[in-house]
């Protein structure tokens, strides 16, 4: 299931360069390509469609006004947009003093198991990561930290488990994802044409 990232999105970099020079057609091309992904990230974090719309609009306003600040050596355009979206959305839920809705987040049986994630919508060869490969408790702690900006002590308090348990779940979860990634990389190197 895992693919190693090998291809830089040179087309996107060119589009960003054009947007930096005020090219509206390039801007349209980028939002038609990535607006769903940005909105999805904002919605994932805020759980509020209206707030997610505001955040997505802000992100694309920034893209329109600040495309020149993008540096291709820092990573893909979409990763850059998703990173900005994540930071912006976490700021908003902190400002509103929101926390993940307990009934949704604490019920492990209701954790999202979407059939289609952001990466599945693009041919971008970003590492294809499935959090479903983790035990639910590890996935839950990783998501609460990464998507909701909660510290380990916040998570321990929210889940009513010892701090050490939260630390272990996050460490083991990320280590497991890395192990899967490395294992897949070795398999691909043995049969290079199998999944490329």
């Amino acid at each position: 299931m895992l693919l190693l990232a090998l291809i830089l999105d040179e087309d996107d970099t060119d589009l960003m360069h054009r947007v930096a020079h005020g090219d509206e057609a390039a801007f349209r091309h980028l939002y038609e390509k990535y607006l769903d992904a940005v909105y999805s990230m904002a919605l994932k974090i805020t759980r509020d469609p209206h707030m997610a719309e505001d955040i997505a609009q802000d992100v694309f306003l920034r893209l329109w006004q600040r495309a020149g600040q993008y540096r291709s050596q820092r990573g893909r355009v979409l990763t850059w947009l998703l990173s900005i979206t994540r930071n912006h959305a976490i700021d908003r839920i902190r400002y509103d003093n929101r926390r993940p809705v307990a009934e949704e987040e604490l019920d492990l049986t209701r954790l999202e198991t979407a059939n289609r994630t952001i990466w599945q919508a693009f041919e971008d060869d970003v590492l294809r990561l499935s959090l479903d490969e983790l035990p639910p408790e590890q996935r839950q702690c990783l998501e609460l930290a990464f998507f909701y900006g909660l510290s380990h002590s916040d998570i321990a308090e929210m889940l009513n488990v010892p701090l050490g348990t939260v630390k272990s779940r996050i460490r083991l979860g990320l280590q497991k994802l890395r192990a899967i990634y490395l294992e897949e990389g070795q398999e691909q190197s043995k049969s290079p044409a199998s999944d490329v």
Partner: peptide, 9 residues
Amino acid sequence: EALHYTPPL
């Protein structure tokens, strides 16, 4: 990086 790509679309 890949964690950014995991939300449902």
